[in-house]
C-alpha cells in the first residue's frame, strides 16, 4: 500500500482542512479529489500560483524538530519535487515556500495557501 501523508492546508480565511496525499502524488493532485483544490496555474512549477508556505512539519514523521521557521530545511524534509521548482528563488525556498503543483509529501505537515500566503513572494519594488 502506498504511504499517505496528512497535509493540513490553511485557507486564506483562516479555516483549515486536512488532505490525505499519497507519497507518489502532488498536494494539488490530492486536493483535486476534494471539494476545493489548492490554487494553481501552470502545473509545471514555473508560475508560482500554487506557492504555499510551510508552517509546521509533524515531528513524528521527522527526525528533526517540527518547527518550520528554519525555512528550507523544513521544506526539504517535508517535500520532494517531481521537477525543478523554477518559480521559486533560493530566498523563497529559504523562507519556507513550496510549489504544491509539483511537491510530493514526505511528512505530515501544515501549509498556508492562497493569495495571502503568496504575498511575500514578491513586493512592490518602488513603494
Amino acid at each position: 500500500m502506498t504511504e499517505t501523508y496528512a497535509v493540513t492546508v490553511e485557507q486564506p480565511d483562516g479555516s483549515s482542512r486536512t488532505v490525505a496525499v499519497r507519497a507518489n502524488e502532488t498536494v494539488l493532485e490530492a486536493s483535486e479529489r476534494t471539494e476545493r483544490t489548492v490554487p494553481f496555474g501552470c502545473r509545471t512549477g514555473a508560475c508560482g500560483t500554487c506557492a504555499g508556505r510551510l508552517l509546521e512539519v509533524d515531528e513524528a514523521g521527522d527526525d528533526g524538530d517540527g518547527d518550520a521557521t528554519d525555512g528550507s530545511a523544513g521544506v526539504a524534509d517535508a517535500f520532494e519535487y517531481r521537477r525543478e521548482p523554477r518559480a521559486l528563488k533560493p530566498r523563497h525556498r529559504e523562507a519556507g515556500y513550496v510549489l504544491l503543483c509539483i511537491a510530493l509529501p514526505r511528512a505530515d505537515c501544515r501549509v498556508a495557501v492562497g493569495s495571502r500566503a503568496r504575498r511575500d513572494l514578491v513586493d512592490n519594488p518602488w513603494k
Binding site: 514555473a46 508560475c47 508560482g48 500560483t49 506557492a51 518559480a87 521559486l88 514578491v122 519594488p125
Partner: peptide, 11 residues
C-alpha cells in the same frame, strides 16, 4: 521567460 514574469515582477 515565463519562469521569470509568471511569479511576479522582481527588479
Amino acid at each position: 521567460a515565463p519562469e521569470t514574469y509568471y511569479p511576479g515582477f522582481d527588479l
